[in-house]
């Protein structure tokens, strides 16, 4: 009986989410009507465009990959009641670290270079995030604020490296030298940029799910997230779980950035990952911090992003309507009152 209750709870959450998304789509349509001189064509481009050919479809899925990693990074932290607001800087730094690693060993075999690049990405970002966790543990300095500030500073420092010491003078965008060919990830859906990192993203979601729900450390982490005093009382080493979730969260962000470089850009371009950190928070919250829920939530965001791009090319609106569409979803996705309506309906 209890099992059924929770199943119906999940169902009304899903229905509430569906309602939120439909409602947001409605607002997007309305917005396009207001802004566009050829609304029908633009709306078609927004909603159907991403599915209209392999190139668009593959690229949309490829955008979801880093969002899955940042979403997982946030889910791990938030489940532990540790608030990592430094995702932006961590993804960016991870991407840059992977690039520098690859540039340092241009003649290494492909797999070695990829592995090293990803280790570098994860380590650097884990360290950046870990600082905030450490300050929190040691002196009770709010990790939410410190991670945000550190991330802002880190992003600027990354800008310096990308446009300064590592800048490639041979191209006219602000970007580093490209990494060696053999480090590029295998494309799996040509002509799009979708590559094997998609499988890694799915694997990461499953691994994080298992870690959080089936392991010793995951249990202790969740307990600390739900109630730290209870956890200390129960004998769990609570301070450890102020730092560990931050480190894991940073590492996942870093991997997201590193995979973007290896899979998509083959170089660190100024600002290439901007937005991934913030959207990771939204993805995690839509997924209710459930690692498996992160997969569809990331796809939804990638869809909005692809829709806006397609509407820009196939219609006459600017790309930023994606931000507006996302903001509609942000506004409503946690609105308790909407879920109550669904619940009452179902009961009646």
């Amino acid at each position: 009986m209890k099992g059924r209750q929770s199943a119906s709870g999940v169902l009304s959450t899903v229905m509430g989410l569906a309602l939120t998304i439909l409602f947001s789509f409605g607002l997007v349509i309305l917005l396009i009507f207001l802004l566009s001189k050829m609304p029908a064509k633009t709306i078609y481009a927004f909603f159907i465009g991403p599915f209209s050919n392999k190139y668009y479809l593959g690229n949309m899925l490829n955008v979801a990959v880093p969002l899955i990693f940042t979403g997982l990074g946030i889910a791990v932290a938030f489940k532990s009641s540790v608030f990592n607001l430094g995702g932006e800087g961590q993804v960016y730094a991870g991407g840059l670290a992977a690039t520098i690693a690859c540039l340092a060993i241009p003649h290494a075999p492909g797999l070695v270079g990829m592995a090293l690049a990803l280790v570098a990405a994860a380590t650097v970002s884990a360290a950046i995030a870990g600082f905030s966790g450490f300050f929190r543990m040691k002196w009770d300095a709010d990790e939410m604020i410190s991670s945000f500030l550190l991330s802002a500073a880190v992003a600027l420092v990354c800008n310096y490296f990308i446009t300064g010491p590592f800048d490639d003078p041979n191209n006219n965008i602000l970007s580093t030298y490209p990494i060696a060919k053999q480090f590029g990830l295998l494309k799996i859906f040509p002509p799009s940029k979708l590559n094997v990192s998609a499988f890694l993203a799915i694997a990461a979601a499953i691994l994080v799910y298992i870690f959080m729900n089936k392991t010793h450390a995951g249990y202790e982490m969740r307990m600390c997230g739900l109630n730290r005093e209870f956890s200390r009382y129960g004998g769990i080493k609570v301070s450890r779980y102020l730092v560990l979730p931050m480190i894991l969260s940073g590492a996942l962000h870093g991997l997201g950035g590193g995979l973007m470089v290896l899979g998509t850009y083959q170089a660190a371009i100024k600002g290439f990952s901007f937005g991934m950190g913030w959207n990771g928070i939204a993805v995690a919250l839509i997924a209710r911090n459930n690692p498996l829920g992160v997969l569809p939530a990331a796809l939804l965001f990638a869809y909005l992003d692809a829709g806006a791009k397609s509407a820009m090319l196939g219609g006459d609106v600017t790309f930023e309507i994606a931000s507006i569409a996302q903001s509609f979803i942000f506004y409503l996705v946690t609105a308790q009152a909407l879920y109550d309506i669904v619940r009452k309906r179902r009961r009646a």
Partner: peptide
């Protein structure tokens, strides 16, 4: 009124403003 999470509606406001 809709009892939404203040953090995420705050993000929404920032995103909305920058997009709009």
């Amino acid at each position: 009124k809709l009892r939404a999470n203040v953090f995420i509606t705050g993000l929404a406001t920032n995103l909305f403003a920058s997009g709009f």
